[in-house]
Amino acid sequence: MVNSLLHVFRNNAFGRETFMQSLYFCKTLDFTLRVYIPRHSKFLMYFENEVTQVDLDQSYLSDPETAQEHVEALAKKAGVSVDFLTPKDFTASTLPDVPIGFDCMCCPRSMSDKTSRIGLGYVGPKVRRIAVAAPFPVLVTSLCYKPWNSVAVFFGGSANAFKALSMGLSLSRRSGMPLDLFTIEEGDVNRETLDNLLQAREMTSVVEEGVREWHFLSKSKLEDNLYEIPPDALTVIGAYGHGMIREALFGSKLEVIQSQIINNMMIVGPKCRVF
């Protein structure tokens, strides 16, 4: 089975960094790369039970004549074959429907905001909505091209964390890179309860075989624990498994993590399937 990654190309220096990250991802995991060069400032993605409109800033539409050329040059250099995606369906004449039959989608930190805002470290609302609704994970890239040499999974025992763990195991297996687990100890989340949960799901042996090291981080502030994450790891995190109210009250760990570390990050949403 050949998997594919969707990349929405932005024809500027920042877009090049993101694209190189996608190329690296595809080369490492033997994915095919589908590139969408936008011709309109917005597009729709129809998921199973939700439609998401992605509003792009003008930088995505800059210099369309050279966009394909740039993509091909970078892809050739990386030795990755590229397939350009041309939307066939349009909800309105300037509103193309981008298909969703991919196994992963690459998004910069915020697809909606202007390039200058991307460094603020905020998973934009559209990226969040895609991650919530999509059957694929979202690869949120680091600000500049940064190859990864290991996989780091945040594992807290929730249903989505298990999905992230499975994804991490798959990524590790396919890339041949080591996998480390990171658990932030709080409340009931400790080694014993997680071992029990793994046993209940019959994953103990898989984890023992596939995980290089399981780190338990116990500092009271979440941010303080993140120093332990290897800077060259692809971090995998299950996200958006809880409701908006809970998130509004207690905040989102994902937002904190991604604003504190600049690693490439894979967000595994509640409807995501593991490749």
Partner: peptide, 14 residues
């Protein structure tokens, strides 16, 4: 008049 067709993405056979 074909009964089956290959599915190709980029240059990859799916």
């Amino acid at each position: 008049q074909a009964f089956s067709l290959p599915v190709i993405s980029g240059k990859r056979f799916l």
